[in-house]
Each structure stands twice: as C-alpha cells, then as structure tokens.
Computed example of a mutant assay.
Amino acid sequence: MIFFKRCFPSISFVLMFVFGLLVSCNKSSKYRDLPEYKFFNLQQQGWKSKRVTQFVSDINYTATEVPIQYYLLKDNQADYAKVDSLYQVNSKERIIEVEFQHTSEADLLLKDHTNKTYKDAVKYIAFTIEKDFTVITSSNDTIPCSGVNFERNFKVAPFKRVLLYFNDIPPNDHIKLIYQDQLFGNGIIKFNLTDSPLKV
C-alpha cells in the first residue's frame, strides 16, 4: 500500500502524458487536411525544395523546385480555401527556379560569357531559353518546358534567375531537370530534384 502511494503520482503522470499524446494525435489528424495546416507545413520547409547546384566553367547553376501554392498564395492573400482549390486544379504543374551566377559575380549576360550582344543575351534568357530545358519524370516521360519568366533584378543581385513552368507531371513524381546550355555553351547539365515535391 505504501509502495502504491509513493508510485501513484508517477503513474498518474504517465497516464496523463499518454492521454495527452492520444488527444494531440487525434487533433492533428483532424486538422491535417485543413488548407491552413498544409500552408503552415510548407512555410516550415521554407517553401522550397533542396537547392541542387552544378559548377561548370566558373558558373554556378542552381535549380530549386518551388510549390505552386507559394505563388497562388501571393495572389490570394490569406484565402487558404481558394488557394487550395486552385492547387487541386493545377496540381500537375511544376515551377522550378534556376539561378546562374559567375564565381567573380560578373554579369553573365555580357558578351564575354555568351558570345551575344547584351541585348540579344537578354532576349535569349527571357524567351528562347525555355527550349533548352526539359524534365524527366519517375516514369521516364520527357516533359518540355511550357514557359519561362526571367526575373530582372537590374544588376542589384549578382545572379540571373529564371522561373520555368512544366505541365502534366503527377504531383508525387520525383523529377530530373535537364538543361542543354546554349546560352553559355557548357553542354548538358542535370539536376536531380530527388527531395521534391515538398510535402504538405
């Protein structure tokens, strides 16, 4: 009896801990499907997949997958239900951010690096570069780039960045980005985006 009295506080603590754990597990499964919960998880992951960098001829080529919810949320501030429904419609689309940066932080669009005039290099990276990118899916389908957006930073940042858009990729597929570098002439560069897609 004395032993039971001495152990009772610790037994009740263990029972309360187990009960609290069960309640919290039940609660988390209840809220797991809410859009707010999904976006909180994406925010905790930093919104992006792991950056994959390849270094060729003094240029760092970096590819990062960005979930489309990030861009949908920017246009529909705090309307999580609307963003979630838009995502369901567009769940087979992928956005990949690619950055190019010279080791000396030189402007990569200068003729020294592209063999084009500055104006022609800007045109190429803004429009024509999309034909240089494809994605290979887990099922070995080859998906061409369907669009590109060159983010102009007006020489404020030391890198050049493009956003690439791809369609018809199953949401759970891992992808490999293939770049046939026609702008800087460094051949075929591959990025295994194995940790994407990000989990929501």
Results as ranks from 00 to 15, higher is better:
residue 55 F to C: 04
residue 57 S to W: 01
residue 57 S to C: 06
residue 58 D to E: 06
residue 58 D to I: 00
residue 59 I to M: 10
residue 60 N to V: 13
residue 61 Y to P: 14
residue 61 Y to W: 13
residue 61 Y to M: 13
residue 62 T to L: 01
residue 62 T to K: 03
residue 63 A to M: 06
residue 67 P to K: 02
residue 68 I to G: 07
residue 69 Q to S: 06
residue 69 Q to I: 06
residue 74 K to R: 11
residue 74 K to G: 01
residue 76 N to E: 04
residue 77 Q to E: 11
residue 77 Q to P: 01
residue 78 A to N: 12
residue 78 A to H: 12
residue 78 A to M: 13
residue 78 A to I: 13
residue 81 A to I: 11
residue 85 S to H: 04
residue 86 L to G: 01
residue 88 Q to C: 01
residue 88 Q to K: 07
residue 88 Q to E: 11
residue 89 V to C: 00
residue 92 K to A: 06
residue 95 I to K: 11
residue 95 I to T: 12
residue 95 I to N: 07
residue 98 V to E: 07
residue 98 V to S: 05
residue 99 E to I: 04
residue 102 H to C: 03
residue 102 H to E: 15
residue 103 T to H: 14
residue 106 A to P: 01
residue 107 D to R: 08
residue 107 D to A: 10
residue 108 L to Q: 10
residue 108 L to E: 12
residue 109 L to T: 03
residue 110 L to V: 00
residue 111 K to H: 08
residue 113 H to A: 06
residue 114 T to F: 08
residue 115 N to C: 04
residue 115 N to M: 07
residue 115 N to H: 14
residue 116 K to Q: 14
residue 117 T to Y: 05
residue 117 T to H: 07
residue 119 K to Y: 10
residue 119 K to I: 10
residue 120 D to W: 02
residue 121 A to D: 12
residue 121 A to M: 12
residue 122 V to Y: 09
residue 123 K to A: 10
residue 124 Y to G: 02
residue 124 Y to A: 02
residue 124 Y to S: 01
residue 129 I to D: 09
residue 130 E to G: 02
residue 130 E to P: 00
residue 131 K to P: 03
residue 133 F to W: 06
residue 135 V to N: 11
residue 137 T to I: 02
residue 137 T to C: 04
residue 138 S to Q: 15
residue 139 S to D: 15
residue 140 N to E: 14
residue 142 T to F: 04
residue 142 T to H: 04
residue 144 P to G: 05
residue 145 C to F: 01
residue 145 C to P: 02
residue 146 S to K: 13
residue 148 V to E: 03
residue 152 R to I: 10
residue 152 R to E: 12
residue 153 N to S: 15
residue 153 N to H: 13
